[in-house]
Design a binder for these strands. Structure first.
Lengths: 350, 350
DNA sequence: TAGCGTTTTGCAATCGTTTCCAATTTAACG
DNA sequence: CGTTAAATTGGAAACGATTGCAAAACGCTA
């Protein structure tokens, strides 16, 4: 489809510059020529070449999104939201799936840079702080989501994990549970640490001793969740409730409970982290702490585009992000469904 | 990060062309200069500008993938596979999520064209054949997956839905089922039609009359699945087995069976289409006909890249794809797990 | 050392836009 | 109708790479 601006200009008997201005909008051309050029361009089937434009303007209209996978529900909705928002704003999404692997992440950040993305939203592994900082220094705005990257000072949008984990644990405590198992993520990520700390805070506040045996930290995988679940259930005094701080681990837990023919919530209460449609469709419907993936994505896009626009505005900017590396939190929400039961049967009746 | 080829060239005291050739590989420069340039480029932190390169070479190194959503397991793995394969081949994936909406699809095809993608993999709605044909005519190779677009003659990679549905139905028949409910997709898509026809063929072959009341065609959504399931179960003589031809509808079915406390497979056998990890983790593990999403994606990438390379090779090509609009099928696979039971209890014993 | 073929290099054009600057047209007013 | 300011246009130089062509350097052989 090789019809270029020059072709349009010739057909309309004007110079390329005029054609450019007419089609570019912004009233740089007279109303009359604008209409005419628009018409002719339409007839010829002209489509502006984003690549050429990008070369001149230094904007690729591409934004990178780097996540771990698409199996996780949070990442799914983030990808969907980011792409929808970007599209509405005239950007396209370059999706990179790095599997939480620093090496791959590093590679992909490189390619993203080569493609001169206008900005980047990333769930950092935490091992490529230098690279991310380099991008930022190279005038490519970076926004981290879900986790913080401790090595680099970057604008970051996080779920309120401390609060979410706290609220969830409190909820279980409120139902009368005293032995609450926790299956949580790796402790070398901010989200993993924060979810654990929220849990601990709630216990302390209720004067419940923290039992190390009830806490399992590991990768976010079904298998890991299953193993942790079995260990917990095999304890001399097993927990009466489980708080599973991630969607994938929850799969493993559900499997084990089904295998052992445990009834949820009668035999065991289950509270998960990160919502996913099928938790709602599952019977019993699984109660969750919704980390607000949708909000995370929206806010990340907001922040990123704010900075992209700012950069484009006064190119002679003071440096990078004036406001320093801000950190935003979006609220986590407890969604009560049917997988947690009260341990004090008659308490609220009578 | 504004270090350009010119900067590298100056630092090395050679011309830009030499620098280009040295870094471009292909032995266009002497071994010595190549080493030197590589070193200097490294020191300066030079990264080639894909945009500028793209303008000159006419290759964006971008490939579009247009799908309906990310909630569907097939699309998830397709997106993951496509992006992994492309990355390995030096391309980036532009992911567009069009929600099976022709208007959005049309828009997105436009933007994709503006970005001069080198090729495009699309799950067509079927309403934009003209647009797709236009892309193809404009020298952007297009490969359709999952569904065919009847309006345009395009290279297409399909699951073997007729065979898959046939095999699934036959399996249920083999277990002794005679009344088999079918919850299938819209009949204005090739996949929807083919899954239905496979079902019918199996019934005919077993001399079972096709009962219209047992067949529900509709959108692939949990709610639709739930409604269909209720209707089927409320029949005077309800089916003893359900064949649910899509992953999302299956969610609705699982909900209804749980609500009614039906035991799977004791009260009702359930066979689904499209595999997803949690079908395996679910108890009972759900038997499925795996449509081979991974294979679909791989083959689509193969075909697409084959044509991209061909185009780049002899630019003075004969026209478009010489071989005509070929159609490929990847095999569907029956995965027996625990959700289907035999209706003839003692049959195989004794 | 001259001559010849082969590498290796540099120059300059080019890809399709945007945008600065100057030139031209148009409009407005005395 | 002349003058001036404002709006509109055209010319040309970028943006950062690749690549055809010709010149320069090199390695051989005689």
């Amino acid at each position: 489809m090789g019809v270029t601006l020059k072709d349009v200009a010739e057909a309309a008997r004007v110079s390329v510059s005029t054609a450019s201005r007419a089609l570019g909008g912004g009233g740089l051309a007279s109303e009359r020529t604008q209409q005419r050029l628009l018409r002719i361009a339409g007839e010829l089937g002209y489509r502006p070449n984003t690549i050429a434009r990008g070369l001149k303007t230094g904007q690729s209209r591409l934004v990178g999104l780097l996540i771990h996978n698409l199996a996780n529900a949070s990442f799914q909705v983030m990808a969907e939201v980011v792409q929808a928002r970007l599209k509405a704003l005239g950007y396209q999404m370059l999706l990179c799936i790095a599997g939480d692997d620093p090496q791959q992440e590093s590679d992909m950040l490189g390619t993203l840079a080569d493609h001169r993305v206008d900005g980047l939203i990333v769930v950092p592994t935490g091992r490529n702080g230098a690279r991310l900082a380099a991008l930022e220094a190279g005038d490519i705005p970076v926004v981290c989501v879900v986790r913080r990257d401790d090595e680099a000072e970057l604008e970051t949008v996080l779920a309120d994990d401390p609060q979410g984990a706290y609220a969830g644990t409190r909820y279980l405590i409120g139902l009368g549970h005293r032995r609450i198992g926790l299956i949580v993520g790796r402790q070398d990520t901010t989200s993993g640490r924060e979810r654990l700390s929220g849990y601990i805070r709630a216990l302390r506040e209720a004067d419940i001793a923290v039992d190390e045996a009830l806490i399992h930290a590991g990768r976010y995988e079904p298998e890991t969740g299953a193993v942790a679940c079995r260990t917990l259930l095999d304890l001399a005094t097993p927990p009466t409730a489980l708080f599973v701080a991630n969607h994938e681990s929850a799969l493993g837990v559900l499997r084990v409970t089904a295998e052992r023919r445990l009834s949820i919530p009668d035999d065991l209460s289950l509270l998960c982290y990160e919502d996913t449609p099928w938790f709602e469709w599952h019977r019993p419907a699984i109660s969750v702490v919704d980390n607000g993936a949708r909000d995370l994505a929206n806010l990340a896009v907001d922040r990123l585009l704010h900075r992209i626009e700012a950069r484009n505005g006064h190119n002679a900017g003071n440096g990078h992000n004036a406001e320093g590396a801000r950190e935003y939190r979006v609220g986590a929400r407890l969604v009560k469904r049917d997988s947690c039961r009260s341990l004090a049967p008659q308490a609220s009746e009578a």
